[in-house]
């Protein structure tokens, strides 16, 4: 039976929307970023070709390196604890006989459905120097007050806390799903052999989760390097720089400040290109490390 022409082109029509959307709003803008980065480009005025000038200026710009340090700092402060905590909670949730299991799992997702904007408003208040709950608690034990928002490490810690709060539960569920795929016979045998909680965690849980751990490292890296909303909303007085001395301005926020705050599209695009290279480099590094770990395993 030969299909009609309509039936033969139908599959292409079904997949076309994605390719169209990706081409117009994803791939083309990405390629065009590389092009715009070569210009002195004002959204309303002229644009003149300047070659690699934007990049030369960028690499001499202390604001760029500051944003780079902040981005990597926040990424590190948020990713490492997030994955470790998620691993621990997933291990705790992975009991067949656990009561209230559904309630525990659902609660893990509450931060995920809360918007970043709302999260930031709350955490900024919790970390406030004068009226924040955290400083009140610190005061009770004789410390502080700590002005989190004013210092570099403090504001980065604050932002990292928001990221950890928001994503740990989601990551926990991913880990838990992988854990549940491990046959309970293995744990049973280990338990019979007298392996306690910690040994089961170390020798059964961690090794079998390796693929999903690599996956979450990659996704949280790609997401973590593009953090924008938290630093924008943390500082009320100087939102575009995340404070008067750019103490927590990330690369994405720097891009936004230059592109949409100062209308330097070319310079902003150059930041975008650098960020792109950074993300690709991190992804490659992750990939290399993970294949290396896999190969080293006997």
């Amino acid at each position: 039976m030969r299909d009609s022409i309509g039936e033969r082109i139908a599959p292409y029509a079904y997949i076309a929307p994605f390719f169209l959307i990706f081409a117009v709003f994803g791939l083309f803008p990405l390629l065009f970023t590389f092009y715009v980065a070569l210009f002195d480009w004002n959204p309303v005025g002229e644009h003149t070709f300047v070659g690699l000038d934007n990049f030369a200026r960028l690499f001499d710009d202390p604001r760029f390196w500051n944003a780079m340090r902040n981005t990597i700092g926040i990424w590190f402060l948020s990713t490492v604890p997030q994955l470790l905590i998620a691993l621990g909670i997933a291990h705790l949730l992975n009991h067949t006989r656990l009561r209230f299991a559904t309630l525990f799992r659902m609660s893990m997702l509450v931060p995920y459905i809360t918007s970043v904007a709302a999260t930031t408003v709350v955490f900024a208040q919790l970390f406030d120097r004068d009226y924040g709950l955290l400083n009140w608690v610190l005061h009770l034990i004789g410390v502080g007050p700590v002005n989190f928002a004013q210092s570099t490490w403090g504001s980065q810690l604050m932002i990292a806390t928001m990221v950890i709060w928001r994503w740990t539960g989601y990551t926990t569920l991913l880990y838990l799903a992988s854990l549940q795929a491990i046959s309970r016979d293995i744990y049973e045998a280990a338990s019979v052999d007298g392996a306690g909680n910690w040994k089961q965690f170390r020798y059964i849980t961690i090794p079998s989760l390796r693929p999903v751990i690599v996956f979450t490292i990659v996704t949280s890296t790609i997401g973590g390097l593009q953090i924008f909303t938290e630093p924008l909303l943390v500082s009320r007085s100087a939102p575009l720089t995340c404070g008067p001395v750019r103490q927590c301005q990330t690369l994405t926020l720097f891009l936004f400040e230059q592109g949409f705050g100062q209308f330097k599209f070319g310079y902003g695009a150059a930041i975008g290109v650098s960020l792109f290279i950074l993300v690709v480099a991190f992804a490659l590094l992750n990939f290399l490390l993970s294949t290396r770990i896999r190969r080293e395993k006997p």
Binding site: I89, L93, N94, R99, S107, V121, I182
Partner: peptide, 30 residues
């Protein structure tokens, strides 16, 4: 289904409850 089958120690509930409190507290604070 997979998962550990030993009896669940009491401190697991304590830790999980703590995790729930941390997950929900910012909304309560709001």
């Amino acid at each position: 289904r997979g998962g550990r089958i030993d009896r669940v120690p009491w401190w697991v509930y304590v830790l999980l409850t703590l995790a729930v409190v941390i997950a929900v507290f910012p909304l309560y604070w709001m």
